[in-house]
Design a protein around this nucleic acid. Sequence first.
DNA 1: ATCCTGTCGGCTGTCGACACCTTAAATTTT
DNA 2: AAAATTTAAGGTGTCGACAGCCGACAGGAT
Lengths: 224, 224
Amino acid sequence: MTQKPLEKALPFYLQIQHEIKERIWQGEYKPGDRLFEAQLAKQFSISRSPVREAIRTLINEGLLSMNEKSQITVYKPTLKDVKDIYGCRIALESAAVALAAERATVAEIAELGSIIAGTEAAIEKNGKEEIVKWNTKFHEKIILISDNKRLKKLVDELQSLIYYYRLLNIEGEERGAIILKGHKEIFKAISERNPEKAAQCLMEHTKEDLKNLIHLIEGKEEIK
Amino acid sequence: MTQKPLEKALPFYLQIQHEIKERIWQGEYKPGDRLFEAQLAKQFSISRSPVREAIRTLINEGLLSMNEKSQITVYKPTLKDVKDIYGCRIALESAAVALAAERATVAEIAELGSIIAGTEAAIEKNGKEEIVKWNTKFHEKIILISDNKRLKKLVDELQSLIYYYRLLNIEGEERGAIILKGHKEIFKAISERNPEKAAQCLMEHTKEDLKNLIHLIEGKEEIK
DNA sequence: ATCCTGTCGGCTGTCGACACCTTAAATTTT
DNA sequence: AAAATTTAAGGTGTCGACAGCCGACAGGAT
């Protein structure tokens, strides 16, 4: 009789890591903000060691950056950076969708279908938060179907770098509808088992996204 | 077990990081080998803190891995892993080469040409080490031309994960020639400013590489 | 002999302290 | 008053120590 293993509290350095990431995503720490080991340690009432480790990991993931003088700041994407990241995402995700179109099981295709249904419902209600959630789900599902963990990790990391803009991207009246249209095309191509077409659709869909995003960013003048 | 003296210039944790990476690449630490913080610290005559940091970073880069019990081992790629990694590389590098074909300057194309010349010379001399070096240079140059730092970082990391096999891949009589042929085709496509063709060539070239690599790995039965 | 259980040693997670570097403020010098 | 030099403060890099967890081993009970 197997006994469920007792849960062990996560080590501090992991908890801190998640907490800092959360704060960045929530906008509590803004791009360019400087962070201090000692200060964080005091805040969390722990020593600097776990804080240091957490920071190191986040630097590796790209969410924090360290200059020559070892000063830590919150990652601040430039416009070129956003474009570069999207370039990578397009490359990786279009490869993923091509794989998905080849190897998706009937059940998996059905799941994708229900995600699209969910998106439609969210658009009806005009729940922007929710639309974003379904949108994310759709892309994640495709990567899952492609069954390539390495690919998933890379996309996840890229995604988290521009998490700030996730919500931005459904500003504008028709964004939800446009995104849905793109997803439907991709879905169709997968259903038809047409890898090239699926990749093509996704590429256009994502480029469209990027274009919109750039437009919004330039409008806001928040990054140059 | 004397240690070559550590330079004072870089912080310890960086030196250790490089040293460990080097040892993995040199085969001193083999896939699956376990590493111990305290032991390494003693070897380098420093405390555990910098060692810990170095290990953390290498874990993030994927060269080391940590199990549930926090034990550190050298990354051991599975066959599926190698395939996945190549899948990512193909996606990223073919995107890179397409960009390169669009925006390469005349000077850059010339540089690529001289790299190919270097490869030919190396093949003449049958210098396997050297062939590998030129091969790497060719791929790196393309990525540089594509002018996408993010892409470069991702490819570099993937590359380092299977660094073990860099030499493996030119085993076999005609490998050098085959690789060269692939490079020439890619080069031609870039010269013609044909992104699609360039991407197509690179994809086939890399798939060919993977196929050969899998063959060799399966022959050696070193990883399953 | 087999099975428990208490003990020991090894290893990681965390801590507090200190040395050192950089930057900015304060003081002296011309 | 401006420039140069010293001093102070704030932060990072490194250290040695300790606690908790885990596996190995040994000795006693069945």
